[in-house]
Design a protein around this nucleic acid. Structure first.
Length: 588
RNA sequence: GGGGUGGUAGUUCAGUUGGUUAGAACGCCGGCCUGUCACGCCGGAGGCCGCGGGUUCGAGUCCCGUCCACCCCGCCA
């Protein structure tokens, strides 16, 4: 049934024809977008990724008979002549709308089953169906546009980094497992029974070794793998724009990365102001309860600890007496919240782990507070300090400073979303700097790296390494866009002793360290330049710039939150022979 | 592992306090139509109400379990 392409070559894409092409003999190759059959007059809209062209079939009974079975998504070749449309039939909605192709011959190159959802209609389809028929979803304008944008961003980055003197260098996909950090994906070795490769969580060690090797500036668009829970902004495999620079200071990394992101924004025609804002980690945690603050809206968290040290409200007084504090934020216009709405806020706070949530507001004849013991005077004082107007609602939580801010920070995001306080089309970029180097792991009673174990401490904090590790701040930084972590990095440790000190603090014995990173520790001793870098999440950049809320919309073949590829049905069982060859056996 | 939202025709959805034969739109199939472009008009087919139990005279609707998709927490150096 299907006819042959033969030596037929397209003369124009489906988005190309203009009035200047009128009179030309053309060959179009593409998919049938829509058929409009008017009896002895029939229109075909033919589509490819470049656009849509109207084809007219008229006055040729044999041809009309031949095209009769054509349905949406058939693949066709159109041979005909480009004609100007009469003034009353031009379609200004189409770039090709001033012309049409009068078909002389139509070849049906392939038929198509009726697709489970329409490519031509812009209808909502459940993500499950879209993922199962991803090849059809990819034909639709949204993903066509998103992947085109991703291409432009990727090209812009490669061009930018080349201009900045970076070499693009590849690193292994089959590499060595390093037990800290995310769960590794393991690949059993056939040649070495019982041994495994790991897929890289990031090319971290390799890029540092490239600095030791003298490559000075390295960049890679690197696939990374982490066997962790999936989210809207996290997939098992994702793409990092990984970079590293020798003799780099934090300021140098910031400048290079700001230029790279500016190049990305140019792909959507947006000029972003530079330099970006910088915010110490401690400030981000205090004001936004979060190390990736969304700065598109206010609702900043304020500290009211000093107002409640002698409060008649025991819960606040006690919190302060035990190194805690009272924090809160103002919800604009929320004074009119009903009992039910404020109860909902309190419930949310409790769900987020708060012991409770107190709210306060002005009323027609004074003030109101949900904890009577605070009293009118105390309520008036805190409302005044918060800057709340008579239309606003103040919410308060007490506890350890970070814990209180964390709950309020999450509540802040919920409220902003629900109250529609997040403006469209705003781009709020910021660096978050001065992360702590270590975090206390209460479960295992030891220090963990907040970033990774190769992150350098700030010089002024080095003396605290042994005496007070929790106070040591790192030369580490994240770059944040609209509440998403776009990337993070650090200046690295480049001397053997500091690296050994850090490993010791992390509870890694010399032997453990040797087993896991021995080759790397050894390499540090052969002339390592000071160096640092960062990795950007390419999927996240593309998603945000495409206006999407999930990176699945910029990844051609993503997995579900249950880590399944619904199109090819991976993962799946394998032939027992394959497993035997790999010396492995399922235990469940 | 925990919390939440959803699952009814190919698709997107509606379906009342549990009560006749489960509806709509688009799509699909057939017919008519010479200027359509979301063509129009006429006719038609299409349902394991996610799956399994239970309550009931009677379940799409109520209860329990389970599966799938999505969002969030934990997790993600």
């Amino acid at each position: 049934m299907a006819e042959q392409l033969g030596s037929l070559a397209r003369t124009h894409t489906c988005g190309a024809l203009r009035p200047t092409d009128v009179g030309k003999n053309v060959v179009l190759l593409g998919w049938v977008h829509r058929v409009r059959d008017l009896g002895s007059l029939l229109f075909l809209d033919v589509r490819d990724r470049h656009g849509l062209t109207q084809v007219i079939i008229e006055g040729d009974a044999a041809l009309l008979e031949k095209v009769k079975p054509i349905r949406s998504e058939f693949v066709v070749a159109i041979l005909g002549e480009a004609e100007r449309r009469s003034a009353d039939t031009v379609n200004l909605a189409l770039p090709t709308g001033e012309v049409e192709v009068r078909a002389r011959e139509v070849r049906i190159l392939n038929e198509a089953k009726t697709p489970p959802f329409s490519i031509a209609e812009d209808q909502n389809v459940s993500e499950e169906t879209r993922l199962r028929y991803r090849y059809l979803d990819l034909r639709r304008p949204q993903l066509q546009h998103n992947l085109a944008l991703r291409h432009r961003i990727t090209i812009a980055l490669r061009k930018y980094f080349d201009e900045q003197g970076f070499y693009e260098i590849e690193t292994p996909i089959l590499t060595k497992s390093t037990p800290e950090g995310a769960r590794d994906f393991l690949v059993p070795s056939r040649v070495h029974p019982g041994e495994f490769y790991a897929l890289p969580q990031s090319p971290q060690i390799f890029k540092q070794i490239l600095m030791i090797a003298g490559f000075d500036r390295y960049v890679q668009i690197a696939r990374c793998f982490r066997d962790e829970a999936l989210r809207a902004d996290r997939q098992l495999e994702f793409t990092q724009v990984d970079l590293e620079m020798s003799f780099a200071t934090e300021a140098m990394v910031f400048e290079v990365v700001e230029g790279a992101l500016a190049a990305c924004f140019q792909a959507i025609g947006v000029e972003i102001p530079r330099p970006f804002r910088r915010m110490p980690y401690a400030e981000a945690m205090a004001k936004y309860g979060n190390d990736k603050p969304d700065l598109r809206f206010g609702l900043e968290i304020q500290d009211f600890g000093s107002l409640f040290a002698d409060s008649p409200f025991g819960i606040f007084r006690e919190a302060i007496a035990h190194d805690g504090t009272v924090r809160g934020f103002v919800i604009p216009g929320a004074a009119k919240f009903s009992r039910r709405e404020v109860d909902d806020l309190v419930d949310q706070a409790k769900q987020l782990g708060a012991a409770g949530l107190i709210y306060a507001r002005y009323t027609a004849d004074g003030v109101q507070v949900s904890a009577k013991a605070i009293g009118d005077e105390g309520t008036r004082r805190v409302l005044e300090a918060s800057g709340a107007s008579k239309d606003d609602l103040l919410v308060l939580a007490s506890g350890a400073p970070d814990a209180a801010s964390k709950v309020l920070g999450q509540l802040r995001l919920n409220v902003a979303k629900k109250q529609n306080l997040i403006p469209e089309g705003r781009w709020e970029l910021t660096w978050v700097t001065d992360f702590p180097l270590f975090g206390w792991n209460a479960d295992e009673k030891r220090w963990d790296s907040v970033n990774h174990p190769f992150t350098a401490p700030r010089e002024e904090d080095r003396h605290l390494l042994k005496s007070d590790p929790g106070k040591v701040l790192a030369k580490a930084y994240d770059v944040i866009l609209n509440g998403w972590e776009l990337g993070g990095g650090s200046i690295r440790i480049h001397d053997r002793e500091t690296q050994a000190d850090v490993f010791r603090l992390l509870g890694l014995s010399d032997e453990d360290a040797r087993n896991r990173f021995g080759f790397f520790l050894e390499s540090l001793e052969y002339g390592t330049p000071p160096h640092g870098g960062l990795a950007l999440g390419l999927d996240r950049i593309c998603a945000l710039l495409a206006g999407e809320t999930s990176i699945r919309e910029v990844i051609p073949f993503p997995k579900t939150t249950q880590a399944v590829d619904l199109m090819c049905n991976a993962p799946s069982t394998v032939d027992p022979r394959q497993m035997r060859e790999l010396h492995i056996k399922p235990i469940a």
